[in-house]
Nucleic acid binder design. Structure first.
Lengths: 367, 367
DNA sequence: ATGAAAGCGCTAACAA
DNA sequence: TTGTTAGCGCTTTCAT
């Protein structure tokens, strides 16, 4: 297969028009409005274009003129490549990609490194709108996005003035999971959660930090737990809650260890994500704790790996979330803005939750 | 969190300059070259910008002027969302994202639906270069990319004039896997392969179609097999080769069934991808065939799921491939083009390959 | 069916 | 340090 040689842009629409002795309009029409042109002339234009190595109208110049980039920007909290390591994020991406595909729009992954506060990439992104996926509410990248005069949809985020939103009711979902554990008889529990703010804090979390977490999702899930357990008389302040910056099974394992070391008497370990829960499961096994007989472990998200392990968790429709975000953004019918979509979740009764040892409940539910 | 209201772009660099009574250059410098400006003036500019709701220089206009889009385009053979369902593609994407991130470049997923021959998305993409991942060599999207006057890197593709390339030696890798099977004693084998061309052909494949496959990767892998088995006297034309358009475990299962129905005597089933092999494993189980005692099954890629199943396969460094592609593209040092990177592969001796039943080899290797 | 004129919003020499 | 001058390459009324 051969390729024509051209290092520098060899021809422009204007030079092509000059060569042909026609106006720029005509050449433009040859590409964009074939019907505005005699077929014969169009053929001549296209042929001359080929001969001159004219690659067709420059997309950037066209974008400037038409005020349309033909792409949607995606802002992620994490290193760009993280999106491809977290199953939940992958599901979200797939859904979003689906929506973009349907609309013939590109999907631009914006490199927003949370370490550097380099907002330039947001400014540089030539897109018609942004989707923001689960970033801390004080993220400078988010602020930069909101300053751009393009429509935006935020995911897993609290309401923002005049901005569309899609998400789930994290607090209610976690509340119902907690309720389930309470019904089983659990009162003395431990918690493993994801990053609560931009600073790294691998360790125990004060109630204060819980309440003021900058990641909406984590704050809401913890609030759901605190509320449910608080309402049956548990002193939430005394419950060990351990935070991890990195979202990996290894983090889940080490966090679980930290909780279990602090209070070996806990009967249940609630994790705010499946990934963390999977790690916790590993740690339990390492310690010879049988799940669920000796220890109940729960997750959140409903990723496939969790399902395969029989994890008790909350399933959320990640793909749908992505698709909804895309649809919302691309559905430019400027109806009642801002719009808000809250998707349903489902409590998954897996095999990793059971009544605590030696309780009356255990006899009812079987050992 | 509040957001300023502006439906239409409210201000431009020019209007801001006018308001301030300074030149456009000065405003531009305030954003792009802070050092070319007295701090005081800069402060005034930025403050007035905020007051007027000026969101900073328009990225598209800037791109037009600077001839830099700050993004890399990715062209995939499949529906855009497919990339997020195939583990190998995900690994590639992760690697590519890593490289982009390092360079502060965005990654634009170009919606190239293989069904429609709609090349417009390629023309519309405002990018500084393209990475093309495993498309058929006659794909019109590929042709469109090659016509764009930007650098391009192709993956898993035969050499193209003047275009950088990264890949593995598919033929050699498959040859060595075949050699392994031959050593074990297999002669009567069946093959399950991925899509060989743009048309759907779910069924048996003629030798002709094998040799003229438009997907380089599949063609090379089949060639490696044919060569290895041919050299020990196997009549490759009599070997059942079944193709599947969709790349799923379900496809692998049904293709395996088709092969086994055609020739129940085969001792080994060679699949050209792990996904297909995983499906084949399921089908074998369904038929009560023990692997590897009754049937040997092999894959290709080395995805995690394969590793977990103990699949005998060829591991290729998908993440590295993505990263190498990105580096090649972004490393604009215009050295000796075209450059070509061939990464190493590794034969994984899993637990799904053993000598055929009742052979001398079986006695040597154990049952 | 084709052309002329008027920018889209910005940056980069080069001057002052 | 700041301003002037020229476009980057294209599309789009509005005429003809």
């Amino acid at each position: 297969m051969a390729r024509s040689m051209h290092v520098r842009r060899p021809a422009t629409l204007a030079s092509l028009a000059a060569e042909l002795g026609v106006s720029r309009t005509t050449v433009s029409n040859a590409y964009n409005r074939p019907d505005q042109l005699s077929p014969e002339l169009r053929r001549r234009v296209l042929e001359t274009a080929r001969r001159l190595g004219y690659p067709g109208p420059d997309p950037v110049a066209r974008s400037l003129r038409t005020r349309k980039a033909g792409a949607v920007g995606l802002l992620l909290t994490e290193n760009l490549s993280y999106a491809f390591r977290d199953p939940a994020a992958i599901g979200f991406l797939e859904g979003l990609a689906l929506a973009c595909e349907d609309a013939g729009q590109g999907l631009l992954l914006v490199p927003a490194n949370p370490e550097r506060e380099d907002v330039a990439a947001v400014h540089r992104a030539g897109v018609d709108g942004f989707v923001v996926y689960s970033v801390p509410d004080d993220d400078p990248h988010l602020a930069a996005v909101l300053e751009r005069p393009v429509p935006t949809v935020v995911c897993d985020q609290p309401d923002i003035d005049n901005v569309d939103r899609v998400g789930i009711d994290d607090q209610a979902a976690m509340h119902s999971l907690a309720q389930h554990l309470i019904t089983l008889g659990h009162r003395r529990v431990g918690v493993v959660c994801m990053r609560l703010a931009r600073d790294r804090n691998d360790g125990f979390v004060t109630p204060d930090r819980q309440a003021s977490a900058h990641f909406h999702v984590q704050r809401a899930r913890l609030a759901g737990l605190a509320q449910a357990f608080g309402s049956v008389g548990v002193d939430w302040g005394s419950i060990p809650v351990v935070e991890r910056f990195d979202h990996t099974t290894a983090s889940g394992a080490s966090a679980a260890a930290q909780v279990l070391d602090r209070d070996p008497q806990i009967t249940a370990l609630v994790c705010t994500s499946d990934i963390l829960a999977l790690g916790a499961l590993g740690e339990a096994q390492r310690r010879g704790l049988r799940v669920p007989q000796d220890l109940t472990v729960t997750g959140f998200d409903g990723i496939r790996e969790a399902e395969q392990s029989g994890l008790t968790t909350v399933r959320q429709p990640v793909l749908e979330k992505g698709r909804a975000a895309g649809k919302l953004l691309l559905d430019s019918a400027e109806r009642s803005r801002p719009r808000s979509v809250t998707l349903a979740t489902e409590l998954i009764h897996g095999t990793t939750a059971a009544p605590p040892r030696g309780t009356a409940e255990e006899r009812w539910f079987g050992p």
